[in-house]
Design a protein around this nucleic acid. Structure first.
Length: 1142
RNA sequence: GCGGAUGUGUCGUAAUUGGUAGCCGAGCUAGACUUAGGAUCUAGUGUCGAGAGACGUGGGGGUUCGAGUCCCUUCAUCCGCACCA
């Protein structure tokens, strides 16, 4: 009986599916094991041979665990929302739900052919409303929680509100956007909207203004990698930096826990390193720098709004309160339009300054606004006197008459605003006093800080820049604004910057140091400002050199003395060394100095110890259609979330998948996109990572309509024991889902803080592309072709150009080996010529040769069918439509070589190999699949045989025959020469048992170490050896087939069944390894002389070292190798080696 | 620039973790069976050498009785991060 894999595989796949063989249920009598593959996005191209690599590995492991008595959860589903489907929808008008469904069906069909042991009853898609209900629900939970630094977990917003009501927020230590201290009574006085506004600063899911890449032509925010040279990669539309109100997730609150959690999981070091890198923790200090000259009276003495002393305040307090009550009509009118930062500046009224009371004051701009009524007319002289004093204090006064206010209030407000906008305080007092704060990880080098640099986008820039430098600064900012963050990163080498005119004072050296702005400082990191230490930071060094700024060495390499930094080629950035020129810390090591200086900084109130993270909050809005709608509506412009009972909020239908005319996201086109009360819903949708962040939890309990996952299911399945997938998710999905899980953990909804216990990154299977060569600008007239190439034949390649015809309608291709030569010769004549190499579909080639000339031709020029010439070494092919003619030596028809290149397997490179048959749009077979040709078991084994799982390798079917032969050989063990199934019930021999148990041991160890490639060769060795012994003993084959079943389940089921078993082999028991079968009674020792192996000798296992030594030394071969010398030493390692040293 | 990984026949790879380098498969060569072979089987196949033997795990050095494996150094390739203060 032949090994008919097609039949066998079809039958068993049907059997598994009908019998739900791999259905997993909570079973508390069995230990659980959860094996998960990373969520696939079902692309239109279907599966290629690279995708199943990880799936096969996880499937082998799942089946292995089942055989070992575990209750295995092994599910599969689809990450179905996403951009490609939507782009396709925009192009074709097809609803993304339809294309996604088609793609998923194709995926499923392909997956089914490979024989995976998934529990298909748990399958779901992220775009199912039943599923995204829980994505939306999780979002509402994030909205309803804040991160408390005291309990170090997420806590409910209700508890925060009740704390506000009791004590205000001064005792609250929460992760928060803009802390502003208020008391309980102040909280209670706030309007509902004001309260909501404040709460948004605390919520884990929050709405805030964020800088984004906005592309108005595409109507969406773009990620950095979607923008190049200020244009969108797709379409080439201009992209601008824009502040937009976006949903974000406060993932930064979890930075420390995300970092620490890495120590508890079994992932590869490289992956953990990537995450650590992404989180980017750095420890250092925030240090306050005063501006020079300092006008403030002292640091940290009083809040800035207290602009008078306590004594005076008590004296004027009554007047202030009185005035506020009895404000004039004009004042009241103005106040209505000034309060609450209506002009963009905080304005206070009836505010005491020195011993005066100002009508209105803007402290950050040191500006007083006076309304002169009749009352004031009597006091004109006094007012002038008062103005004088206030001016001395640094305030300026603008005045308006009552009548002005009434006659043209708009004009008055506009004047106030433009006055405030224009006013630049020379010494930065409006920064909240007297200077600004920087973050550094090297506070020890502060004595070497000789200048400061601000990020161009920093809010501080406007405030420090002196009038003189204003235009230069603005010019510089404009320049940098044009470039995206990405571009800035790209040309690191270019040094640019601009002096602001302002100086700060180094708090330790007390010297005045200039303040610059430069785009090498990022607004988003730290405080957007740095202290520059050119001697010990290469970027600062370059900057100092460029602008000729002083460089002071403060760290010397251990054992070296001070040198002149002016002579340096580069800075000394290392933390190895001893402090010099550094006041009290001179002589300390860098490590000690860092700690010591921070202590001083804290004691003297110059700053604080500080930990900084690179991890930023995740922007969660997309102006897109094909994603989860936010369960959010807006009431008075403020967001409210829907209750669970109103979820899911289903994605509405729209007429087009494009933004609306007025630039709203596609959901703006939905007919009724508002609550029943008429409050509008959010128009953005969630990003790709939303749906994939908690899917592993949902698999535990996929049909539950009451909760994401039941307590029962979660307590049983707990976490993913083995997670297999590609590295591409290292910093995206794997950070987000860890965050998401930790959040749910804080809420007590899941029992494990880390979701993925062990994680393996399978290597990529690359494609083997084929390139064809042609030369641009070099086409020839058809009528010349024959003569041309006869000529070419006679004269060699270089004469091709002599016949450069004028009727251009033939394209010439060159076989790889002559392309270069041909090109070189053509280039002599026409300089415009270029050697072109481009990808061609690999299925027109075979063994790196073009074979399907006419098919290639058809593919190549659909638009202009013409003649093509394929120049080979000893002639050429002329191809016209279906006619292919060889011109040249008829005895040796030329091979037309293409150039093989290993690249990523991708549709655009035409190098995709799918596991099953590949048909064109008309249904013609264009590429035979491995599954059809060899069967799924061969595919599974071969993918594993290719090499270590983690390693990337190009797909190459050379060698697949060997694996297929192995399966046939295995099959033959069960049949006699006539093809009749025949298994002997005789007891196995010692040798047979030894072979079997050697294999059991090896397979068990290999699977546990995920070393599947070596298991496959172990199987081969085993079957080879059994074949040599002509072994057909049931005792041996029965165990062997169980071993194989994890790898090649179909053939195993078939043979298992033929052995007379009624149940699926999945319910068999993994054979037990018995060491006694491997016990040998002798060992063949390799005998080396001075470490070089010369011959080997057999000794009984219980021979003593003494006995062995005597026998070996007396052997005549030993005498020969010793060359008559006496051995100095004889090393005998039992059951290992014998080495004789002489 | 920083971090990580890898480097072994013609190719994919293996090596009991410091103990006979090249298992298994492919390819190639020769042969058997056969009407035929993309079937099956047998033998050979690291390099040099007629041979004995010598050399051989990117290069150089070291530790060791013994190194593909450990240490130092250097080169190459791949991947990740990258003005992160």
């Amino acid at each position: 009986m032949e090994y008919n894999f097609t039949e066998i595989e079809k039958n068993w796949q049907k059997f598994w599916s009908e019998n739900k063989t791999f259905k997993a249920e909570v079973d508390k009598n069995k230990p659980k094991f959860y094996v998960l593959d990373m969520f696939p996005y079902p692309s239109g191209a279907g599966l290629h041979v690279g995708h199943p690599l990880g799936y096969i590995a996880s499937d082998i492991y799942s089946r292995f665990k089942r055989l070992n008595g575990f209750n295995v959860l092994h599910p599969m589903g689809y990450d179905a929302f996403g951009l490609p489907a939507e782009q396709y929808a925009i192009q074709t008008g097809q609803h993304p739900a339809i294309t996604t469904d088609v793609n998923i069906k194709r995926y499923r069909q392909q997956l089914d052919k490979i024989g995976f042991s998934y529990d298909w009853d748990r399958e779901f898609r992220t775009c199912d409303a039943d599923y995204y209900k829980w994505t939306q629900w999780a979002f509402t939970q994030m909205f309803n929680h804040y991160y408390d630094n005291k309990t170090n977990k997420a806590e409910s917003i209700e508890s925060l509100i009740s704390e506000f009501e009791k004590n205000g927020n001064s005792n609250v230590n929460a992760v928060c956007s803009e802390p502003e201290i208020f008391s309980a009574s102040e909280w209670k006085q706030k309007s509902e909207n004001e309260k909501q506004e404040i709460l948004l600063n605390y919520r884990i899911a929050y709405l805030a203004d964020t800088m984004v890449n906005w592309c108005s032509a595409l109507g969406t925010v773009l990620a950095n990698d979607e923008v190049k040279d200020g244009l969108s990669v797709r379409g080439g539309h201009p992209v601008e930096q824009k502040k937009m109100r976006q949903w974000s997730l406060r993932i930064s609150a979890y930075a420390e826990r995300l970092l620490n959690g890495l120590d508890t999981v079994d992932w590869t070091d490289s992956l953990k390193e990537m995450q650590r890198n992404w989180i980017g923790k750095s420890q250092g200090a925030e240090i306050h720098f005063d501006l020079s000259p300092t006008l403030s009276k002292g640091k940290g003495a009083r809040p800035e709004y207290m602009t008078t002393d306590a004594h005076t305040w008590l004296g004027v307090k009554e007047h202030v309160v009185e005035n506020r009550k009895n404000s004039t009509e004009a004042e009241a009118f103005l106040w209505k339009n000034l309060k609450g930062k209506k002009l963009g500046y905080k304005i206070r009224r009836q505010h005491a300054i020195d011993k005066f009371i100002a009508d209105f004051v803007c402290l950050e701009k040191k500006t007083i606004i006076e309304i002169d009524g009749i009352y004031h007319d009597f006091q004109k002289e006094q007012d002038e006197h008062r103005t004088q004093i206030l001016t001395e204090l640094g305030f300026s006064v603008i005045r308006f008459k009552n009548e002005e206010v009434f006659a043209n209030p708009e004009k008055v407000l506009a004047e106030i605003k433009s006055y405030l906008d224009a006013k630049v305080l020379p010494f930065g007092e409006d920064l909240g006093g007297v200077g600004f704060t920087i973050f550094t990880t090297r506070p020890d080098t502060i004595f070497g800080c000789t200048f400061m640099v601000l990020a161009p986008e920093s809010e501080l820039v406007d405030k420090v820049t002196t009038t003189e430098y204003k235009s230069a600064i603005q010019e510089y900012i404009l320049e940098t604004k044009k470039r995206t963050e990405r571009e800035r990163m790209a040309d690191v080498k270019k040094v640019s910057g601009q002096f602001t005119g302002a100086y700060a004072i180094n708090p330790f050296t007390k010297t005045e140091i200039p303040i610059y702005i430069s785009d090498y400082v990022l607004a988003g990191y730290g405080t957007g400002a740095i202290m520059a230490v050119p001697a010990h930071d290469s970027r600062d060094f370059k900057f100092a050199k460029h602008f000729n700024l002083p460089i002071i060495q403060v760290v010397a390499k251990a054992g070296e003395t001070e040198t002149d930094p002016q002579t340096w080629e580069d800075s000394y950035d290392s933390k190895d060394g001893v402090m010099i020129n550094s006041g009290v810390i001179t002589g300390m090591t860098v490590k000690d100095a860092v700690n010591h200086i921070i202590d001083i900084i804290e004691n003297e109130d110059l700053g604080t110890r500080k930990v900084n993270y690179r991890l930023r909050d995740a922007i969660f809005s997309r102006q897109r259609y094909w994603g989860e709608p936010f369960p959010v509506y807006f009431k008075d412009g403020l967001p409210q979330v829907l209750d669970l009972k109103n979820l899911p909020l289903e994605l509405p239908e729209v007429d087009k998948f494009l933004p609306t005319e007025d630039g709203q996201p596609p959901l703006g086109r939905a007919k009724k996109w508002s609550t029943e009360e008429g409050f509008p819903f959010e128009l953005s949708t969630m990003p790709g990572f939303a749906g994939s962040s908690a899917y592993y939890l949902r698999y535990m309990d996929p049909k539950n309509d009451k909760e994401l996952v039941s307590k029962d299911a979660n307590n049983y399945w707990q976490d993913v024991d083995l997670y297999i997938g590609g590295t591409e998710h290292a910093t995206g999905h794997l950070i987000y889902s860890r965050f998401w899980n930790k959040f749910l953990f804080d809420l007590g909804l899941v029992c494990k803080e880390e979701p993925f216990k062990k994680l393996i990154n399978q290597g990529m299977i690359q494609g083997l592309s084929e390139f064809i060569c042609t030369i641009s600008g070099h086409k020839m007239g058809t009528q010349n072709i024959t003569t041309l190439f006869d000529f070419y034949w006679l004269n060699g390649i270089k004469n091709i150009v002599d016949c450069n015809g004028n009727n251009i309608n033939a394209e010439v291709f060159y076989s790889a080996e002559i392309a270069e030569e041909a090109f070189n010769n053509i280039a002599e004549v026409t300089e415009k010529c270029k050697l072109l190499k481009f990808n061609i579909p690999i299925y027109y080639t075979s063994n790196h040769k073009l074979v399907e000339f006419s098919k290639f031709k058809l593919w190549r020029d659909l638009d202009s069918p013409s003649t093509s010439i394929f120049v080979c070494k000893n002639g050429y092919w002329i191809v016209k439509g279906n006619s292919v003619e060889w011109i040249g030596d008829q005895n040796i028809k030329g091979d037309f070589h293409t150039i093989p290149v290993v690249e990523k397997m991708s549709k655009s490179k035409y190098n995709v190999v799918s596991p099953d048959n590949n048909y064109d749009s008309e249904g013609n077979l264009i590429q035979e699949g491995v599954i059809e040709k060899y069967g799924a078991d061969t595919l599974r084994l071969y993918e594993m045989f290719l090499g270590p799982l983690e390693q990337s390798k190009p797909w190459d079917t050379q060698g697949i025959d060997g694996v297929h032969r192995f399966l046939k050989k295995l099959w033959r063990l069960f049949f006699d020469n006539n093809g009749t199934f025949q298994v002997s019930d005789e007891p196995a021999t010692k040798d047979e048992l030894k072979i079997l148990h050697k294999t059991i041991k090896k397979i068990k160890e290999d699977i546990e170490n995920f070393s599947f490639n070596t298991s496959v060769s172990a199987f081969m060795i085993c079957v080879n050896e059994l074949s040599d012994l002509k072994c057909n003993k049931r005792e041996i084959l029965s165990d062997l087939i169980v071993l194989v079943s994890s790898f090649a389940p179909h053939i195993s089921e078939e043979l298992w069944n033929k052995l007379g078993n009624k149940e699926s082999i999945s319910f068999a028991k993994f054979p037990e390894f018995k060491a006694e079968y491997l016990v040998e009674n002798s060992f063949l020792y390799p005998i080396s002389f001075n470490g070089k192996m010369r011959f080997s000798m057999d000794f009984p296992i219980d021979a003593t070292i003494k006995e062995i030594e005597t026998v070996v030394l007396n052997d005549e071969r030993s005498q020969k190798w010793l060359e008559g010398k006496a051995p100095k030493k004889v090393i005998i390692v039992p059951k290992k080696i014998i080495n004789i040293v002489f």
